[in-house]
Amino acid sequence: MAGSAHYREAHPLVFVITHWINLICMIMLAFSGFYIHYPFFDGFMGVARGMHFVAMYVILINLTFRIIAAFFVKTAVDLGSREVDTDIKNWLPQEKNRHQFFETVKYYLFLRKEAVISAKYGSLQKIAYLATVPLTYLMAYTGFAIYGPTMNWGFFAGGVDMVGGPMNMRIIHYFMMWVFIVFTMIHAYLANVYNFSPSKIIFAWKETEH
């Protein structure tokens, strides 16, 4: 956020790398997914499928690693702070986030003038970042349910029956990709709305003072 410094303690190198991996995998998954959904040029289906499956495994491993690392790596406790604590504590809601959800919504809807007090991340931000975890696993579930080698496993076949067949599962998988696309749009917008310092620290690991 404008006004705060962006130090490396906010995003240690390991999370800069996992963020890069997430970004690259997401782009590969969305692109190859669109291609598999409707091949808009010839000669790429085998590669698109291979890309989709490789990126899928990488992003799942990366996500699982990111969650485990959250319990061991220390990150900044607040905006513009060099004081660190275990990352999971800063990822889950902090004391400063209490009672701030509706105030944050009001701020972004222009219903109040002053920006709200927030912890390392604001209330909305934390909800979004936490939701990506189950969403990614759910996305993987819907994908495995229509993936040749696993679609006949009872765990996935049961889900296919529940939603009324593999065609419906495909459509859910397709719409969920749009959830990620819209998330990414909002995420990139809100992160950089004041200035590009957040991008500098998360992509280039470059510190800024405001």
Partner: peptide, 22 residues
Amino acid sequence: GMKAAGRIGPDGPPVETAKAYD
């Protein structure tokens, strides 16, 4: 809207000193 509300500048928007709830 953010631009029009003057929230985008070198110092950003003013931040509350205490939570509305408090």
